[in-house]
């Protein structure tokens, strides 16, 4: 396997292209359980008819864990939005439709967003009173079984040369309430400073999914708490504001 051409970079992982394969190589200290879980998640979602690059193998490359998938030739939706700003609205509509299509699927073997969020709130480092409020709020949320991508943003959609929109990066997929997934996408736009796109996205998701805006907004403190676990100093102040849900009497 040749690791020559880098096609994506993160602090702890790199994606290389080798012919018609994409090879995601993880750092040496990356958790084996997380790598195997990511491959398992992707394999589980493959059973739907969603356009997803198939997992070919999980292997080790130069002592590092790697997931090998099909390579999709194309551009990310994020790149298309940057290159064609006049088409942002059109791309956003497509983006929302893809998310709703994902959420129309059912994959019973996936972990639940409910358990994941409880765990993240516990790990958030927030004070006990705020954690209590967030756990209580989470308990009150409707428990659905929709497939939730978990990191749904335009960088994770590749529009292929065949104009099919392929969905990548299934590391965080769960099943549960689609409004939680929409709240997370909204948060991701806001964290990128894309406030205008965030608001357009929220309106589109509500309109096209026939969802009340309030049902998404109720999830915002919870998804903000879950993002705190990543411990990014530049996001902390912003996220703490969003998690401040305690009503003092």
């Amino acid at each position: 396997m040749k690791l020559q051409k880098v096609i994506a970079v993160r602090t702890s992982k790199t994606v290389y292209r080798d012919g018609d394969l994409a090879i995601k190589v993880f750092d040496e200290d990356y958790s084996k359980a997380d790598v195997l879980n990511e491959a398992l998640n992707q394999a589980r979602v493959e059973v739907t008819d969603l356009p997803i690059p198939k997992v070919i193998e999980v292997t080790k490359v130069n002592g590092k864990w790697a997931i090998v998938t099909e390579f999709i030739q194309g551009k990310t939706l994020w790149r298309l939005m940057s290159e064609n700003p006049e088409k942002v609205d059109e791309y956003l509509e497509r983006f929302v439709d893809i998310q709703l299509e994902i959420q129309s699927k059912r994959v019973p073997m996936l972990n639940t967003i409910f358990e994941k969020m409880h765990r993240k709130i516990t790990q958030s480092g927030l004070d006990a009173t705020t954690r209590y409020e967030l756990h209580t709020r989470l308990e009150s949320m409707p428990k659905h079984k929709k497939v939730c991508h978990g990191d749904f943003n335009p960088s994770n959609i590749i529009v292929g040369e065949d104009d099919v929109a392929y969905i990548i990066d299934w590391a965080h997929v769960t099943q549960g309430n689609g409004s939680a997934d929409a709240a997370r996408t909204y948060l991701l736009f806001r964290l990128e400073g894309e406030d205008e796109i965030a608001e357009k996205y929220l309106k589109l998701f509500c309109d096209r999914g026939d969802t009340a805006k309030q049902s998404i907004q109720k999830w915002l403190p919870i998804v903000a708490a879950s993002q705190l676990v990543k411990e990014k100093p530049e996001q902390r102040e912003f996220l703490l504001r969003w998690t401040a849900v305690v009503d003092y009497e």
Partner: peptide
């Protein structure tokens, strides 16, 4: 990536790629 890991800075630095 190696320097970030060696200096224990994974929580402080976001490395990413762009076209």
């Amino acid at each position: 990536q190696q320097l970030i890991a060696e200096n224990d800075l994974k929580d402080k630095i976001d490395l990413c790629g762009t076209f």
